[in-house]
Amino acid sequence: MKRLLVVLGAVCLIVLLLGAMHDLAPASVELHAAVAANLTASGVEHPVTAVLLNFRGYDTLLEIAVLLLALIVILAIGREEASNAEATVDVRLLVSPVLQTLAKLATPLMIMVAFYLLWAGSFRPGGAFQAGAVLAAAAVLLHLAELLPSWQSPGARLRLGLAGGFLIFLAVGAGSLMQGALLEYPLEQAGALILLIESGLTISLGLILAGLFLLLSRDDGETS
């Protein structure tokens, strides 16, 4: 009965949404034209990076805050778990030396790709998000090859790295608030400020995304 109702509701949703979408009038605001017109004032040449870090910078600021919050919650949940996790048999698979060697060879390359993406973000597709994701992927690869242990409890330096991107972004935001408006950069320094924020974001995003994996996988690493 429930299944029938839900399927019926989903089909109605599809029909109504498709109908609404196909009758939609042309957009009254041409956002891509507005972005193209102001691109020279943004300090970067790639429109998506300009939107992410200049025109709608507060979105990105809140996003890194949300990520940090998620990591803190996982840290809070897992701690308790580690203290009363019962000991179970360790059935960790043997990792082949081929995988370990490959991981060792790939990691420097991945770090290089991450920095290329960060640098490329100012004038072509790429940027802090993709670079951070590649860094996190390198950490996950190292963890799967048993070269990098799970995080039990991050130390002070790691915590600084995790929060650093958000703090740099917040400091730039506060500085621009005193100058005039929130995240409105002066024209001459816009490019340099965006690169500074993006570098911080890359490191922090990489660490946070890696941390999501390394913290979640800790309860079956050392404790169990």
Binding site: V48, Q130, A133, A136, A137, V140, L144, F213, L216, D220
Partner: peptide, 26 residues
């Protein structure tokens, strides 16, 4: 949208997949 494509391949497929498989394995 090559930017989203890059992020989706690395995050949406790679990292989410790794997280889910790790949870399944645990």
């Amino acid at each position: 949208a090559p930017d989203i494509g890059l992020a989706e391949a690395a995050i949406g497929a790679g990292l989410t997949g790794a997280l889910l498989l790790d949870a399944y394995g645990a």
